[in-house]
Design a protein around this nucleic acid. Sequence first.
DNA 1: ATCAAGTGTCGAAACGATTCGAACTACATG
DNA 2: CATGTAGTTCGAATCGTTTCGACACTTGAT
Lengths: 331, 331
Amino acid sequence: MVPCLKDVAERAGVSVSTASIALRQDPRVKEETRRRIAQAAEELGYRPNGIARDLKTRRTGMIAILLHSLGGPFFSELVRGIEDAVHVSDFMPIVSSSGKDDSALRRFLLEKRVDGAIILNSNIDEEVLQTVASESMPIVVLDRSIHLEHVYPVMCDHRTGARRATRHLMDLGYPEVAFISGPADSYHGRLRHDGYVDAHASLGRQVDERMIYHGTFTEGSGYDIARRMAENGRMPQAIFAANDEMAIGALRAFGELGVRVPQDVAIVGFDDIRLANYVTPSLSTVRQPMYDLGVTAAKTLLRMLKGERGFAPAELQTELIVRQSSTGFPG
Amino acid sequence: MVPCLKDVAERAGVSVSTASIALRQDPRVKEETRRRIAQAAEELGYRPNGIARDLKTRRTGMIAILLHSLGGPFFSELVRGIEDAVHVSDFMPIVSSSGKDDSALRRFLLEKRVDGAIILNSNIDEEVLQTVASESMPIVVLDRSIHLEHVYPVMCDHRTGARRATRHLMDLGYPEVAFISGPADSYHGRLRHDGYVDAHASLGRQVDERMIYHGTFTEGSGYDIARRMAENGRMPQAIFAANDEMAIGALRAFGELGVRVPQDVAIVGFDDIRLANYVTPSLSTVRQPMYDLGVTAAKTLLRMLKGERGFAPAELQTELIVRQSSTGFPG
DNA sequence: ATCAAGTGTCGAAACGATTCGAACTACATG
DNA sequence: CATGTAGTTCGAATCGTTTCGACACTTGAT
């Protein structure tokens, strides 16, 4: 049905091996023969079968980008960074959401359908990565501090980012900053919490545990917490939320309750999702350089694919973005 | 280095063929043999090589989702729909942004590294699709009216959506509705324009060409056009914009100029990007059911992969979403 | 005892490319 | 004339699976 190299070779009256190298412009084959082969290929509409080639050459030229889900607000910047950086090589990135089960991991990494992978999915535990990564299957993990052979982390310093955000509020003059945290078992939630604590330590202040509220990284949880604050009469003057979604939920609650932001309460979020710039008031936040993270991850992986090891893993810094929600002065 | 089936077979003292079927739980092999083979595989850490399997079975179990870019506002819903629908089969979707050049197309479709594809990228022209699609490489194209063998379109009825949006404004009582169109060479731009015209025809009205402005689908172009309208003193009372980005640009311009929306001018956009619900005033718009489009595209492709042909292509309807920007009454 | 129909296993041939070493020609060199 | 060398081409092995037909051995029915 679909023509293979053998068909081309026969039509051109040469052997398969000659046809193979001829089509790749190998100088060993005579100009005239090469032309004949090219023409035969053209006439038959021959296309090399990538799978067969991959099998023989033992490389696929593809790298997997495994994300928890494609819905996240940043991943598109991230992927853009990866793509731009990978573009200079002859690799091609493919994106797959790996979700909860590890079918994508099996399919791509264990069954060797890619040459390497960049993983941003905290559901995949270290043990699995351990068994999957190898000399011939290098892996870059984003946003996790993992040190395994053949696995490189590319991190963003959330802790420092959270410290700066908290300090920003403190430096504005707010004596007490409340914290809307993420779930207790969230790695990033913990880092941001640590940064919040660091900020207090840096000024020799005590953290008041009653100022820490536990959310779930959803807008709804931020909304609920903000309502509780207002209705219990325990309104803080400043809030640092562990992500923008929750901060936006809080904004909505305060809007409904007539609590003015930033006059009555200042708010800073984390992540700089696109929405942060469009809500009213616009939300101060901590931005992760997603594009750069992508570039760095890709570059790291390409180095590993070249066989390099032992270089230092990268860590990128966050950026504090001050918008309306934290530009007032303590009332 | 990495163990292959032969190694497993040797260690278990059976032939390669027996090992092969045993590992797939084939009832032909005796329970005890199977156990022995399973154990050998386990001890060696054997993982079947997917590439070899794909080569032999002539299918990869993967379908490509080729998008122009991953940045678009809807594609994540779309992909979610595809993934949910594909999940019931044993196929696995992979996403790749195909951009301008066709390297992804070559790599995946021509070199047969996938079993089929869903394409949302108007840069890929019909001729290319023609040569790529085949009995064994079915393709679904989104949002384009293409009829080729082995290529199925899955469309959303933009024209009717645009007509309804325009009629919505007319029915509110606005005698004249201006139109901020997309670029002239844009397929969707034209459909939306046609719908705008249809709405006039449905009431026996003439389209006033001077009410049609040409934008580029960017926020900036919407902004510029709105400023021109206001400054030239040719302010319409109602505007239908061919997409939300331009509508939001117009909102921004009017905000700056003190033109009130919807009191002074009503605006409706198209697409229902997430932002539409968050701008002030919130933007009325026409929503494409991206999730459903994804589901439909995937189901269509799965049918083709089963060998079905000749069924009718699907077309989905849009949904008019009325928000603040068009809830006033003609002033 | 003979045949038919299972069981369980195996060897070899695919799948469609790449690659290595051999081989053949033609020509120049010692 | 033997030998070397460069330029072309070829045959066969290989990558790691799956699959098909053959084969040996039981078993139960005739």
